[in-house]
Design a protein around this nucleic acid. Sequence first.
RNA 1: GGCGCCAUAGCCAAGUGGUAAGGCAAAGGUCUGCAACACCUCUAUCACCAGUUCAAAUCUGGUUGGCGCCU
Length: 311
Amino acid sequence: MKQPLIVLTGPTAVGKTKASIGLAKEIGGEIISADSMQVYKHMDIGSAKISSQEMEGVPHYLIDVLEPEEEFHVVRFQQMAKEAMKQIYANGHIPILVGGTGFYIQAVLYDIDFTENKGEPAYRRELEEYAKIHGARMLHDRLRAADPKAAKEIHAHNVKRVIRALEYHHLTGECISAHNERERARKSPYEFRYFVLNDVRSRLYERIDNRVEQMIEKGLLQEVEALKTRGCKRDMVSMQGLGYKELFAYLEGEITLEEAVYQIKRDTRHFAKRQITWFKREKQVIWIEKNQLDYDETAILNAIKAQIPFA
RNA sequence: GGCGCCAUAGCCAAGUGGUAAGGCAAAGGUCUGCAACACCUCUAUCACCAGUUCAAAUCUGGUUGGCGCCU
């Protein structure tokens, strides 16, 4: 029999955290964060990290487990999440995957296979160099020679993805297009329910703007300053986070504080939009529209619970 | 009251006789080892009216609105 798994996601600032606590308490769940920034210590304000008070005793995994200098990516997330799930099942509880990183959710939900290659930094660097010297077009031509199907699917300007496709081919001898096709057909090994909490766009954007203001008031700038003093560099994965990269630019004198705040709001809205696009494409998702439930927390919880037969 | 300047998409903004650049915002989308990343698609008939001309956002006259200066 398949193991149960609940996914609770939605665009940033929609209210996932709050709903997740209510849900966990009702069904005896434990929470695994599917968030690429909340894993990092010392990044509390900007990542809108849940506080221990807010956890209300519900066990949380993958929050505050890495230093900002450490690298984090899907593969690592997948490993850690699977481990956490094992623990939760051992506790006799239901894992609830909560967070806004759709890619990460997909990786554990469908147990996507990433293990085939270890990566070869030298080759990757060579490709980056090549792109810099000869341009994205030429790099894309190389991909066309190696994996024509992938070349058709990946836009030439998208250097990052082109490099990965080339790297994959170099490392495995297989086309990444073939790999993707195979993985796409995968069925989830879990008995899952995938909830997407959503709200009216204008309302969501308003919440985002307000939340950014609050972050600034709470001292986001000081948080970023501390990270900078600590030695964090802009090219670190952790410093790509919303709020961090913009304030970093401010601290280095590239933009004014006002511009930085404007950009954080704008980029966060863009992010929310991209998240929604992602969830629209995912199969078997259950949309929970807050406005249709009159923004009533109990109603939202009940709507979710009603879809969970195994709870 | 007089004189001068201006009026192009939600915002900024090119174009000064040949059939509306660009940027931002908004919207839609891609994504299978950096994903809070990276990338793609996409929005106007030029304040209004009349005239000149084969042809006007571009020239002329008027109307309306805004800005500046003067009395």
